[in-house]
Amino acid sequence: MHKTFRFAIIGSGNISRTYFQAVSKISEASVVALVSRSRTQPDFVPENIEIASTLGEIRAIFDGVILATPNGLHHEGAVDAAHLGKHVFTEKPLDITMTNMERMITACRENNVKLGVAYQHRMSPDNMTLKKLIDEGAFGRIYSADFAVRCWRDQDYYDSGEWRGTWEIDGGGPFMQQACHELDLYTWFFGLPNKVSSFTDTYGHDIKVEDHGVSIFRYDSGMTGSFIASTVAYPGFPPTLTLHTEKGSVILTNGRITGWYIQGMDNPSREPQGPIHSGAASAAVTDTIGHEVLLKDFISAIHNNSEPLIPGESAKLATELALRIYGKLEPSVG
């Protein structure tokens, strides 16, 4: 393999801009092509980048793809790339249905290519610390875990793309879109609940999906949880996780420990490397640190034939929980 890992980016929207910026900061990676169905060249794409309307039309040699298409189209790019023997890194969520996620995972496995997912909030130092402490049982019994993801999006946001606010392509409202990072953290920390009860509605937008809702979880351990996801919470607030445990309470705000009330244990919060995009008031992603970390790991996993930090099997849990919140999927049996 070429010493510089060569990516083709599929999709030319805002998140594509983020990936061009992230890859430009990685010495061992480059972008050689962009797939755009309209064959238009966005202003953030250098003139030397090849523009193609399909993956199969690309003339440049490339090693893998970055999927920057709308949620419900991820499986198309992943399956096409896998059949060409190209590794696949996808923007979150993995996809919006269990069937399409399994198609992605199977295609990559059968064609011996890697599949990585951009749930970069796991890379927050305090989120990693909390995960370690939960896995070690440091808090004793966890009584409850409550996540609130209160975002604001105006109607112009939903009108900016015909797929926005649709079941068919977006896959849902804030539970599937704005809050999927937090659903990923929730399932990473605690796994899937065995009982889910939800209330959702559309309050402030002309869209087909919910713009606000609350879901209640119950785990076999007895732990309860709640999850609020919204795009009507003006002006938008940082996501907040509150844990109540046998040893005390913890509050995380936008991936950082902001409240530590655990008996007999010092606050383990680590100095963050930089700002974390919360998405509370804007969909634009300006910091790329998390993307850079995951892309570097993805390239390393390919060179070392190891598993990426966030593989498809792990990433699919966030979508699975979103589908259960929507009542579109029954809990697994057995």
Rank of each mutant, 00 (worst) to 15 (best):
A229N: 10
P272R: 10
T166E: 05
M101E: 04
R59D: 14
V45L: 06
K195G: 04
H121P: 02
P70H: 06
E168Q: 14
S27Y: 00
H212D: 14
V196R: 03
L192S: 06
Y234S: 15
T319H: 08
T224F: 01
F44W: 06
D63C: 03
D297V: 09
E110I: 09
V293F: 09
P174M: 07
P268M: 09
V31N: 11
G173V: 05
E330F: 05
Q120I: 02
F139L: 10
A283F: 06
E76W: 02
A283H: 12
R103F: 04
S16M: 09
G77A: 12
I66L: 12
P311L: 07
H291V: 12
T224K: 09
E210Y: 00
V196L: 06
A281R: 14
I325Y: 01
V88R: 08
V214A: 14
P275F: 05
F139N: 14
M265T: 09
I207C: 02
Y261T: 11
G213A: 06
F227G: 06
G137D: 09
D146P: 07
P235I: 13
P268S: 01
I105F: 00
L309R: 11
A68M: 06
G264N: 13
H244D: 12
E320C: 15
D95W: 01
I61S: 13
A281F: 13
F139G: 15
H83A: 15
E182D: 13
G334K: 05
V45S: 08
G140M: 13
A60S: 15
H2W: 00
P235L: 00
V88T: 08
T231G: 09
